[in-house]
């Protein structure tokens, strides 16, 4: 009987062991499954100039990336060009069906160097002052026109203010150093890179590698951009770092400063690029270096 007991006990022990093993495997498997269900968190991006040609430079970045204030520049431009001019065509249809006799002149120079849609929109505004001073009009038409002028003036002012702001944001410090679409991408996809562009992309890649920051520590909802000018002496050392414009986050500026410290020395400046020291303008944003 004792023997039978011992054998039974052993059998039960083995059964319990098997159940325990299955239980653990189940829990671990469940954990894997649950982890697999979670949408993968977007990783911090490292954007390099080389892979981002031309004006699309900021687009490939996932704007929903965690911890990044995603304020892309594009939508602003779209806003201006789409929302503002909309009321205009309607107004013009009501008031002024014939436009032909009026020579279209734009009295003031366009304030924005934007290559995109906004400029036709602005041109349309400029037609107004040209049309308005026509003497043979009834009082009604004159009144209407006045109203129209007033109603058009407002959006124009608003638009100007907006475009000024946008220009400020886009152009950065008034310096030729910061050309956003500069770098290797300018010539489009098929263009051969000039030595300068090659060197610049090399520099950007190196700085990007030594640059790390946590998106969670950046203020959300703000456009963060730091305009930094660096002077590279021919042997590659970074001789001088100047913040032409600091970003709104001191932390961000600090990471940029550290990245530049770590990146020094850069590769020597090729002779065909510059013989003396080279001054480079870099725009640091949470999405990368532009």
């Amino acid at each position: 009987m004792k023997k039978g007991d011992a054998a039974g006990e052993q059998r039960r022990l083995v059964t319990a062991l098997v159940i325990a093993l299955v239980l653990h495997a189940g829990v671990l498997g469940g954990l894997v499954y649950v982890q697999g269900l979670q949408p993968p968190e977007p990783e911090i991006l490292t954007v390099s100039l080389v892979s981002l040609p031309g004006e699309g430079a900021q687009r490939p970045v996932e704007s929903g990336a965690e911890g990044e204030p995603s304020v892309p520049d594009e939508p602003e431009v779209v806003d201006l060009s789409r929302s503002e001019p909309e009321p205009e065509p309607e107004a013009e249809k009501q008031q002024e069906p014939v436009e032909e006799p009026v020579p279209v002149t734009s009295p003031e120079p366009e304030p924005e160097p934007e290559p995109e849609e906004p400029s036709p929109a602005v041109e349309q505004h400029k037609q107004v002052p040209a049309e308005s001073p026509e003497p043979e009009r009834s009082v009604d038409t004159a009144l209407n026109e006045l109203q129209e002028r007033v109603s058009r003036q407002k959006p124009t002012d608003l638009e100007r203010a907006l475009s000024r702001l946008q220009q400020k944001v886009k152009a950065g410090p008034p310096s030729g150093l910061y050309d956003r679409s500069s770098g290797p991408g300018r010539g489009g996809s098929g263009a051969v890179l000039s030595p300068y562009e090659q060197y610049l992309s090399q520099v950007v890649a190196i700085i990007t590698q030594s640059w790390s920051f946590s998106g969670e520590l950046l203020p959300r909802g703000q456009d963060i951009e730091a305009y930094v000018a660096i002077t590279v002496v021919p042997d590659g050392d970074i001789a001088d770092v100047t913040f032409d414009r600091r970003s709104s986050s001191m932390y961000f500026d600090e990471t940029v400063r550290k990245a530049l410290e770590l990146a020094s020395p850069l590769p020597p400046v090729p002779a065909e690029v510059a013989t003396s020291s080279l001054r480079l303008g870099l725009i640091f944003t949470p999405r990368g270096i532009e």
């Binding site: 039960r12 022990l13 319990a16 062991l17 159940i19 325990a20 093993l21 239980l23 653990h24």
Partner: peptide
């Protein structure tokens, strides 16, 4: 694993 084996075994016993 061992402690769960013991728990299951002892609980039944």
């Amino acid at each position: 694993v061992v402690s769960w084996t013991i728990i299951l075994f002892k609980a039944g016993m």
